[in-house]
Structures are given as C-alpha cells and as structure tokens.
C-alpha cells in the first residue's frame, strides 16, 4: 500500500497548488474525473488476485473518500477566499457624498406661524383667517380709532384710491369679523395674516409683515387668564422657565392694555446688545377687549369679557434664529430661505 501513501502526498501537494477554480477543476479531472487516476486505480482491481482484491478494494475506497474530502475542503476554501476577495473589492469611501433627492424648505415665517398655531391649538384656539384689504370702519373705527384719533398716528396707513378702503394695518380687524361670525358663542381664535404700514423699509421695519392675533371671548375671561395664556405660550415657544414682564401700555381696542417682555433669550437677563442692555425683549402687546369693541362685535360687555393679544412672527423668528434684518423674509433670497430646516 505504499504506492497509495506516496500518491497521497503528491495529490495533496497538487491540491494546495490549485489556487483558483480553474486549477482546481484541472486537478479534479486529473484525479477524480471519469478518466482520472482514481478510476484507473479501481480498474486495476480487475487484474488482481481475488484474495488480494478485497483488501486492496477497501484501501482504495478509503483513499478515494480521503481524496474526495480533501477536494471538497479545498473547493470550499477557494469559494470562501473568492467571496472575501469580492467583498474586499466592494468597499467604498464612506465619506463620498450621497445621491440626494432635491430638497425643499418651508418659509421661516410659515414655520414660525406653525409653531405658534401648535402652541395655541393645544389650548383650544382655532385659526381664523380674515381679509387683507379692509374698510376704514373695520380696521379703525370699530376698534375705537375714530377718524382723527391720535392713536392712528401709530399706524401709518396705505390708503387705496377708493375712499375708506385701505390695506389693514394690523390683524385686529379680524377680531371684529370673528366676533360677528361667531356671536354669541364663546371664542378662542388665532388670527394670522399679512399687514401693511406706510413706513420706510429698514432692517427693523417692513411695509408688509405678518401679525398673529389671539382673541378669547366668554363669560369668565380675566386679565389673570390672559397672563396665564401668555406665560404658557412663552414657555412652549421660547423654552421652559422664561420670565415674563407685563408693562402697562395703550391700544385703543383693549382696556387695560399691556406690552409683554420676556427675559432676554441671548443673555438671560444680564444685559447684552440684543436686549439693548435692559435684560428684556418685547414680544407682544395684549389687553382686555375694550367694551366698545365687544359691543361692535355683538357681545354685551356687561355679560361677556375677553382678551386679545398680538405678536409679530418676524420678530419672533428674528429672535429665535439670530436674523438681524427683517428685509430678508420677503426678499426670498435663495441663500437665505434654505437655511431654515
């Protein structure tokens, strides 16, 4: 049986030398193929003595099994090596940029409005949209600004060529329209919209801007409720723990009236350029709806009371996003808008 041992050595050496599928196939044909060595060895059995045949046959069978296993093992190893090589070739530079779909962005003012809507929706407010082009009566007179009233000076107006038709100077005429629509139901609405003022356009003032007004009317609405609503709003929009300061002020359509400051979001009240070293930032105006306005809206001020507040989403967006020039918002510069995720 020495011949088989010798053969085994040779076969194994050749098997190791087969480094790719083609070489392995050559090897298989040479040893395990139909006309290969293994079959030749078995054919040799026929010419042997019968008494030797059994032992030789057994040895050959064992030998063939060993060779077959060695082949399969080698085949498996080569496959594995090939897979590893292929995987290695497929590696990428993960820092290369990806295939990006085109991106769009919501306008920062639309986003700010959404944030405001969300906060007030949670408190039961609904959005009521009113018109841009208004009458002098609804924009001013029904809100307690009679013709010639000095408070009109605070709202320089774009008049149209039609007498007493103007571009609304604030969203407050929406108060009248909402009340007339809904009375005598209780009201909680948010009135967003564009407003217009006859003012030179500068980094701090625009001729067209948005306002968001809030109005609540009911049988038990107090100034204390107004404070509660606005504290809840400021904490949700500007972050928990904000301090609010209510200053007495004057709007013809509310009585009492207040302006509201929050502690500076930049310096926390210590004093910085943003808050002009006061520690406070003015964010909105508010007050209890003036009895005349309630009456003009169809509510008896002896039974009903209400509050109203108004704010500028541009101002809020400027504070939240470090925007120092209001003119950016409606210039729609393609370098500005996409910065707001």
């Amino acid at each position: 049986m020495d011949d088989l041992n010798q053969l085994q050595e040779q076969i194994k050496l050749e098997l190791i030398a087969a480094r790719d599928p083609e070489a392995l196939e050559q090897w298989r044909i040479k040893y395990l193929g139909r006309k290969g060595l293994m079959n030749n060895l078995f054919r040799g059995l026929g010419s042997m003595l019968v008494e030797d045949r059994a032992a030789r046959g057994k040895a050959l069978n064992q030998f063939r099994q060993m060779v077959q296993e060695a082949f399969e093992e080698r085949q498996q190893a080569l496959k594995e090596a090939q897979l590893q090589a292929e995987l290695a070739a497929e590696g990428v530079d993960v820092t290369l940029p990806g295939r990006r779909p085109q991106l769009g962005h919501i306008h920062p003012i639309s986003r700010t409005l959404r944030d405001i809507y969300r906060v007030f929706s949670n408190m039961g407010f609904q959005i009521y949209t009113a018109r841009d082009v208004e009458t002098d009566e609804v924009n001013f007179q029904l809100l307690n600004f009679p013709k010639g009233h000095p408070a009109r000076e605070m709202q320089d107006t774009f008049h149209t060529t039609v007498p007493d038709i103007l571009l609304r100077t604030h969203t407050s005429p929406g108060q009248i329209r909402a009340m007339r629509d809904y009375h005598p139901e209780p009201i909680r609405v948010i009135l967003p919209g564009k407003c217009y003022r006859y003012e030179q356009v500068t980094a701090r003032s625009e001729m067209m801007f948005y306002q968001v007004e809030g109005l609540a009317v009911g049988r038990h609405i107090t100034f204390a409720d107004l404070k509660g609503t606005l504290v809840a709003f400021a904490n949700q929009l500007f972050g928990e723990g904000r301090k609010l300061r209510f200053r007495c002020s004057h709007f013809p359509f509310t009585e009492p009236s207040a302006e509201v400051d929050i502690d500076c979001i930049s310096c926390g009240g210590k004093g910085c350029r943003l808050c002009k070293y006061t520690g406070w930032l003015e964010i909105l105006g508010c007050g209890m709806v003036h009895p005349n306005v309630l009456r003009n809206g169809g509510y008896d001020p002896d039974i009903y009371s209400g509050y109203a507040f108004g704010m500028g989403p541009e101002r809020i967006a400027m504070l939240l996003h470090n925007v120092d020039d209001i003119r950016y918002f409606y210039a729609n510069d393609a370098r500005f808008l996409p910065q707001f995720a």
């Binding site: 009521y128 209780p186 909680r188 100034f223 409720d225 200053r247």
Partner: peptide, 21 residues
C-alpha cells in the same frame, strides 16, 4: 400688573371647527 395672578382659562371651550383652507 405683576401682582395679578396667573390663571389658566376656565371658561367654556368654544365649539371646535376646522379651518379647511
């Protein structure tokens, strides 16, 4: 104004409506 308490609206909730637009 600072001495006025802070309260949450306790008034009746108005009918809720969609603003579909």
């Amino acid at each position: 104004y600072d001495n006025i308490p802070i309260t949450m609206l306790s008034d009746e909730l108005p009918p809720q409506r969609h603003n579909w637009q």
